[in-house]
Simulated assay, not measured.
Amino acid sequence: MITLIVGRKGSGKTKKLIERANEAIEKSNGNVVVIEKGLKLTYDISHQARLIDSDAYGILGTDALCGFISGICAGNYDVTDIFVDSTLKIIGQDMKALVQLTEKLNTLSSLADTKITLLISADQSELPKEIDSFTEQI
């Protein structure tokens, strides 16, 4: 299952991610991974989660992010949840690329039995209709 948490900057998306990540940690029988751009969530997310700074691994673009997440799932069969903060800062503002990423990650999510949540800093009206079924407005 893939979920897109959508809202403009300052609308509370990161707060929602923190809540959901910490809830997932409490409920998970496996591992929870949080991918962030920069190290800003270190003190908000439980130490039991695996925090990954996308900048430290040079993750830029749709293919890099998708490949990185695929590698996490391939290397760790017990990852139950993956959260990605600042998705558009990592992949760029290309909405067609966002649709492709969403489709690929939705397939991966089913194959790996992993819940994937992406935070998208944009207004719902700016997003392509193809991803409406995955979005959750903040």
Rank of each mutant, 00 (worst) to 15 (best):
S109D: 08
T114Q: 07
K96S: 15
Q93D: 15
L105C: 06
V99S: 05
T87M: 05
T114P: 06
L101I: 05
L98K: 03
S110E: 13
T117M: 05
I116Y: 01
I116L: 10
S125C: 10
E126F: 05
S121L: 13
E126G: 06
I120S: 03
I91C: 07
L111G: 07
E126H: 04
S121P: 14
D85A: 12
L101S: 03
L118I: 10
V84I: 10
L101G: 03
V99I: 12
I90Y: 02
M95I: 11
I120A: 09
T107C: 09
T117K: 00
Q124F: 10
S110K: 11
G92F: 03
Q100R: 12
V99P: 05
L111P: 00
D123S: 14
A97K: 13
T114F: 07
K104P: 01
L98T: 04
D85T: 09
K89A: 14
S110C: 07
I116T: 06
T102V: 08
I91S: 04
A97Q: 13
A112I: 11
I90P: 00
L101V: 07
S109R: 03
N106H: 08
I90K: 00
Q124S: 12
I82C: 03
N106Y: 05
K96A: 15
L119V: 11
S110R: 11
M95H: 04
L111A: 12
S86A: 14
L88R: 09
V99M: 06
T87H: 03
I120F: 09
T107Q: 11
D113I: 11
E103N: 08
L119C: 11
K115Q: 13
M95S: 04
T114Y: 04
M95K: 12
L108C: 06
I91R: 04
S86G: 11
T114W: 06
I116N: 00
Q124K: 14
Q124I: 14
L111E: 12
L98H: 04
E126L: 07
L108Y: 01
I116V: 14
E103S: 11
D94W: 06
D85Q: 10
T107G: 07
D85P: 05
K104Q: 13
E126S: 12
L118Y: 02
L118G: 02
Q124T: 12
D94T: 08
K89R: 14
A97W: 09
T114M: 09
K115Y: 12
D94Y: 05
E126M: 12
A122N: 04
E103W: 02
L101D: 05
A97P: 10
G92K: 05
I90C: 04
A112C: 13
I90H: 00
S86Q: 13
F83Q: 00
G92N: 10
V99Y: 05
Q93T: 14
T114D: 06
T117S: 11
L119E: 12
F83S: 02
L101P: 09
M95F: 12
T114G: 08
K104W: 10
D85L: 05
E103P: 02
S109I: 06
I82Q: 00
T102P: 02
I91F: 08
K115W: 08
I82N: 01
L88H: 09
G92H: 07
D85R: 01
E126D: 14
L98Q: 04
K96V: 15
D123E: 15
K89V: 14
I120V: 15
K96P: 02
L105S: 01
M95N: 09
S121A: 15
K96Q: 15
N106K: 08
Q100K: 13
S121M: 14
L98N: 06
